[in-house]
Amino acid sequence: MLFFEWLTIALALPVIPPGRDESELLDGLRKGDEQAFAEAVDRYSGSLLRVAMAYVPSQAVAEEVVQETWMGVFEGLSRFEGRSSFKTWLFTILTNRAKTRGTRESRYVAFAEKTGSEDDDEWGGVDLDSFIQSGSKAGHWIEPPHAWDHGTPERLALSKESREQIEQAIEALPATQRQVITFRDLEGLSSDEVCNILQVTETNQRVLLHRARSRVRRTLAQYVKGDLG
């Protein structure tokens, strides 16, 4: 391609600023830069919505919580010191808003009753009916887990059907288990960050994560056996 040809094309293209890193984004927000705000909204709002759904009973309420979270960002921006990542700070604001919201929502009561019984959830994360309970083989698998081949995570993540199965499995979890697995495995936060946000001990966090992952694994195992195996 001739240089001038290239130049004409290049000049005709809209200027798309390359993705800003977190501190550039924050600078932009503080200056009231609309581009920066739009970029921040596009980068984080999906995650915020997904987390909000673990707190409140409907998509509509979750969307309002996401909006309130961004309002909280405007208010708190000058005080944000960057001791946590921006994303973790957003999640902290979000959980506070979601909890306040939760107590105001009458529907939340029904939701909490439905899913809030995890404190007395005796289930240890593994179903007893997966294991032989008596005799010389006690403690062994009744139906031993199969080997999944190497590309299974990619395949599962790409299949619409398996994504729906995962979503349903996560939705069916008690609220705090859903919150922990969303933060840890969907959003990739560290256990320290999650303990801070949720104000739970490390052990408690791990127990919730264990139960949640065990249930999702079981759903996937059934799916893999039926559809991919």
């Binding site: 999906g46 995650s47 919505l49 997904r50 299974t152 995570p153 990619e154 599962l156 993540a157 994504r163 995962i166 697995i181 495995d185 969907l186 990739g188 999702v216 996937l220």
Partner: peptide, 8 residues
Amino acid sequence: TLGKLPPE
């Protein structure tokens, strides 16, 4: 797998 699911 869970880490590969982008948010809507």
